Computed example of a mutant assay.
Amino acid sequence: MNKLLLLVGAGIGYVLGARAGRERYDQIADQATKLWTDPRVQTKVDEAKTKAPEVAQKVGEQAKAKVDEAKAKVTGDSSSSSNGSSSSGSAFGGSGSSSSSGTVQNATGSYDPESGTATVDTTGFGPGGDKLP
């Protein structure tokens, strides 16, 4: 009897909740439509659309500059570095070696800027992997 009463109560609650939920959903959808079609909102949307290409170009230029900076750090080329300093040793951190041609090698892999190829330690253990169980 208690299970039957629980099921009937749950069914009534579901039906009433679904009706109230749909009505509330319709209210929210109507408000969102009114807001989107408001002339003030559309003015701002149009402004954003006209500025988007300019912003995209700026972001692209900044990203390219950062890539060039990173390449300079990896290859050890100080001429294109923003602060004019160069670092010796591995650009990947830890111990490693780098050559005058810009090739870098350490325990996790190597990078050859001339061919644009990078090799990565595929064992999944990284440096000191032989010490893992």
Rank of each mutant, 00 (worst) to 15 (best):
E54W: 04
L7I: 15
A107L: 11
A18F: 15
T119M: 03
A63M: 05
T75N: 13
S88D: 14
A52G: 05
G17S: 12
Q57Y: 00
G96N: 02
V74G: 03
E47P: 01
A65K: 07
S110R: 00
E47L: 15
P39M: 01
S101R: 09
G102I: 10
T50Q: 10
T33Y: 07
G60T: 04
M1N: 13
T119H: 02
T43S: 12
S79R: 06
G76C: 10
S81N: 08
T33P: 02
S100Q: 13
G102Q: 07
A70L: 09
A20K: 15
T103V: 15
S110K: 00
V104A: 02
A65I: 08
V45I: 15
G94F: 03
A91Y: 05
V67E: 00
P113C: 15
G96F: 05
R19H: 09
S110Y: 01
V45F: 10
S80Y: 01
L132M: 14
K44Q: 13
A118Q: 04
W36E: 15
G60A: 07
T33H: 11
K66D: 09
S95C: 04
S81T: 15
N83P: 14
P53Q: 03
A20E: 14
T37C: 03
T50N: 12
G116A: 05
V67S: 05
D77V: 05
A32L: 06
D112G: 02
M1L: 13
L132R: 09
W36N: 08
P127M: 04
P39R: 00
S100L: 05
G84T: 06
A70F: 09
V74M: 03
E61Q: 11
V67C: 00
S100W: 03
P127H: 07
E61S: 06
V45N: 07
K64W: 05
K73P: 00
G116F: 00
G11P: 01
Q62P: 01
S97G: 07
L5G: 09
S115M: 00
T122D: 04
A10L: 15
K64V: 08
G128T: 01
A29W: 02
R22Y: 13
E47A: 12
W36V: 07
Y111I: 00
L16R: 04
L132P: 13
M1V: 12
G84H: 04
K73T: 10
S115K: 00
R40I: 09
E54K: 07
S100G: 11
S101Q: 09
D112H: 00
R40N: 15
Y25V: 10
K34M: 10
S115N: 00
V104D: 02
S100V: 08
K58M: 14
F125Y: 07
K66H: 09
D121E: 06
S95Y: 06
W36F: 11
K131F: 01
V41Q: 08
L7G: 10
E54R: 04
L35P: 04
D38C: 11
S85M: 12
A48F: 08
K58R: 13
T33M: 06
D68T: 11
G96I: 01
T103D: 04
G96A: 12
G116P: 09
S95F: 10
T123N: 04
V41H: 12
L6V: 14
D68L: 14
Q31Y: 01
G129E: 01
D26N: 12
P53E: 01
V74L: 09
L4Y: 08
G94A: 00
D46T: 13
S85H: 13
G21A: 07
